[in-house]
Simulated scan of single mutants.
Amino acid sequence: MKPLLAWVVMVWCDAAAAGTPLRDGRQSLAHQGIERGYVVRLPAGAPPAGQRWPVVLVLHGGGGDAAITEKTTGFTALGQREGVVVVYPEGTGRLGNHLLTWNAGHCCGQAMQRQVDDVGFIRRLIDQLVADYPVDARRVYATGISNGGMMSHRLGIELPDKLAAIAPVVAALFGDEKKPAQGVSALMINGALDASVPLAGGAPGGRFANAWDGAHPLPAAAQASFWAAADGCTGAPEVTTQGAVQRTRYRCPAGREVEQIVLADHPHAWPGGERGSRLGAQPSMALNASSEIWAFFKRHTK
């Protein structure tokens, strides 16, 4: 065991023995002079003997926050059932904790315009979680919706040493992304009825189209092609359709997996989740994205 990891384990064990409870709920850390918020949701009890909890980072969409994302995805309940630490990081905004966005490159809002170092924030957050909780640094995953899904792509590209897999939801790539230094398994979920991030690519729509920098996203299928190339997958993918659910799976080396799911009846929302607001789109119930994503994640470690 490496000295630093041994020290972290010793400190956590001493705290547990002394009856010090692990912190659950809203927390913060400072990064580049900005106080950044995040919400931690822990499983009940301690990890099984000799084991550590996996961690799933769930990133909100543009204009969202941790509370909205926790409600719409249902990931907290899943984490408690499955023994997963679920963390809801928050972006930045002009109005304090309102209308938060991520700097995903070409989107969105203030975070993009001010070139906020969201990658650095997430790197520090992962290190903080490893220091504060009995979590497995080899099983850290990132997912997110819309702007948060785009940020998940960026994290996979720039933090492949930290993440075992990513799962962007109703997101896209733009064509100027660099190949990551190492492979990261990726699951993408998109909707054929999505007007905000169109399945065919092109100009974004929806209420917040002006939050982008003018670059047009590629067709949704380009996400899978990008990660298939990054992961060394070869040959034509296998495409299957069952009802409203179409799956495209690539042939990848052992330990790597790339899959894209397109839902024929799905708009810009979290599949199988709750509607974000009365103005939000009604999600498809053809698939539960949170369950699908966790089933994908738990097959992968660093």
Rank of each mutant, 00 (worst) to 15 (best):
L193G: 08
T240K: 13
T92M: 08
A181K: 14
E70D: 10
A171C: 06
V55A: 04
Q242D: 15
G83P: 06
T72R: 08
K162M: 12
K302Y: 05
Y141G: 08
L78M: 13
A295G: 03
I261A: 04
A192D: 12
A229D: 15
A269W: 06
Y141Q: 03
E158Y: 14
V56Y: 02
L5H: 13
V184K: 03
V84F: 09
G33D: 03
A281L: 11
Q32D: 15
L22S: 07
P271A: 04
E259F: 01
R123M: 00
F75D: 11
D176T: 04
R123I: 00
V197T: 15
E257F: 02
E292S: 13
P180K: 03
P43F: 07
G33P: 02
A181I: 01
A46W: 14
E257C: 04
A15Q: 13
R207T: 14
A137H: 06
V239F: 07
R124M: 08
P237S: 00
L193S: 09
R41T: 12
L78N: 02
A244H: 15
W7R: 15
R138Q: 07
G83V: 09
R251P: 09
R251H: 15
L5G: 07
W102G: 00
V87H: 13
H216Y: 08
Y133V: 00
H60I: 00
A164W: 07
L218A: 15
S146D: 02
A15C: 12
A186W: 03
V197G: 08
H216Q: 15
D118L: 03
I145E: 08
P204E: 01
G232H: 05
Q223L: 11
S284V: 10
H98Y: 03
A186P: 02
T72S: 10
K71D: 09
V39M: 10
G93D: 11
S225Y: 06
P47Y: 01
P271Q: 07
P43A: 12
R94K: 13
G214K: 11
A192Y: 04
L199N: 09
V197Y: 09
G280M: 00
L155I: 09
G109Y: 10
D194Y: 02
M150V: 14
V262L: 05
G63A: 05
A67T: 14
A111R: 00
A228R: 10
V130A: 15
Q128H: 11
V170C: 14
Q282A: 08
P134M: 00
K298H: 14
G50M: 12
L199P: 05
W227L: 07
A244R: 15
Q80S: 03
E274R: 14
E90R: 03
H98L: 13
W12C: 10
C233P: 14
R247K: 12
I261G: 12
L187A: 06
G45E: 04
T301L: 13
G183F: 01
C252A: 06
A281G: 07
G25T: 11
S225N: 12
I189S: 10
A142T: 11
A46C: 08
P168K: 04
P54I: 02
D65Y: 07
A254C: 01
A44H: 11
R26T: 14
D118S: 08
W212F: 15
N190C: 09
